[in-house]
Amino acid sequence: MKNDKPRKNAFLMFIHKMGSPPWFYNFTGKFVPWLWAGFTVLTIWGLYLGLFKAPPDYLQGESYRIMYIHVPAAWMSMLIYIVMAVMGFIALIWRVRTMEIMAMNSAPIGAAFTLIALVTGSLWGRPTWGTYWVWDARLTSELVLLFLYLGVIGLYKAMDEPRKAARAASLLALVGLVNMPIIHYSVKWWNTLHQGSSISMTGSKIDPSMLWPLLIMAIAMKFYYGANLITRSRITLLEQDLRKGWTRDVIEGTAGEHKS
């Protein structure tokens, strides 16, 4: 007899399987150590090149080296918000629980990157601009971004039922994503309106010896995000499914033998 069930293509099948908690847990468990390893190697390499090999800046001296933390963190803070909102959108439309968990576990990581960008930025600002904080457009939008993250985290933590909380916080993240460009441009334009832009990025041309460590660090931070997100999500899944069969298999160490 012929099987008349329509065959899904491999990609759709993969997406479908990722929605199943045991499958997700086992699949991600195989490569999460590699993500952590990639992060460690790239970070050591990038920091070594950035902190020891790259020449000092002719204007800023050694203080510019904080860039190798600051700039990747600032990039990640924005990237993670977008990724979180997109995952939240998927979670809202298709109600995929693993997506809800991934979106919600992205929020604290993104908030941490935003905080790191703000703190390293003000530490860098002290020797270069002579002040820890200016109401510059970039700084202000980064601060507003932190508030947006805190709103998502706050709403998620305030509700008792995790799935409902994740959907509410995902909707908030989505509303924030729609507003983000508006906030960014209004802030940018507010600053030029008031005091004229006195600060810009240190020239568009960066010497390759300074640029390479930056790019390596940027990739290292993406590995970190992936590794941290998956590690967190696996733990959240275990916590939420504590009373289900597949978690017992995992805890007793027989997960590989279990047919799911």
Binding site: L150, G154, G176, I183, S186
Partner: peptide
């Protein structure tokens, strides 16, 4: 906390 960032513009 939720709405003030959205009120910025």
């Amino acid at each position: 906390l939720l709405v003030f960032p959205l009120y910025v513009p």
